[in-house]
């Protein structure tokens, strides 16, 4: 059973979004996603300052099994990326909601409106058998 913390919001493409006090958001991939990928060996993150469009590919996670695009759950500007993932991509497998965060983004107004709450995302996972 995948972990789905109640205080986060989710994209159907298995990214999570955490609201930070300064109005920016932190983004990563969900427990379901890291499980499905298996051991991660490389992570490619966007450059700081890059403009992201909700639903467009913004990063790549490569596991022993496959390379997968990560889709930005919001539109906005990249403020920071988790540099630790370059040397220790396994942080995503170990703590996908904590030390395995991927990037911090300043979201464009209203761009997070489509995101799912934890219950809706859990229902989404149940529907796909996850």
């Amino acid at each position: 059973m995948s972990q789905v913390p109640a205080d986060l919001r989710y994209a159907k493409s298995h990214e999570w979004v955490r609201n930070l006090p300064d109005g920016s958001v932190e983004i990563g991939i969900t427990d379901h996603a890291q499980h499905a990928l298996g051991d991660l060996v490389f992570v490619e993150l966007p450059e700081v300052g890059r403009a992201l469009e909700a639903g467009a590919a913004c990063a790549v996670v490569e596991s022993v099994k496959a390379a997968s695009d990560v889709y930005s759950p919001v539109s906005g500007t990249v403020l920071a990326v988790n540099e630790a993932l370059a040397g220790t991509p396994e942080l995503i497998n170990q703590e996908c909601y904590g030390r395995g965060w991927m990037m911090r983004v300043q979201p464009a107004a209203g761009s997070a409106a489509e995101l799912l709450g934890a219950d809706a995302y859990t229902a989404e996972l149940a529907a796909i058998g996850g």
Binding site: D39, V41, E90, N93
Partner: peptide, 9 residues
């Protein structure tokens, strides 16, 4: 079985 948790481990 493809792995029991971590293929790399």
């Amino acid at each position: 079985p493809v792995h029991y948790g971590s293929q790399i481990e």
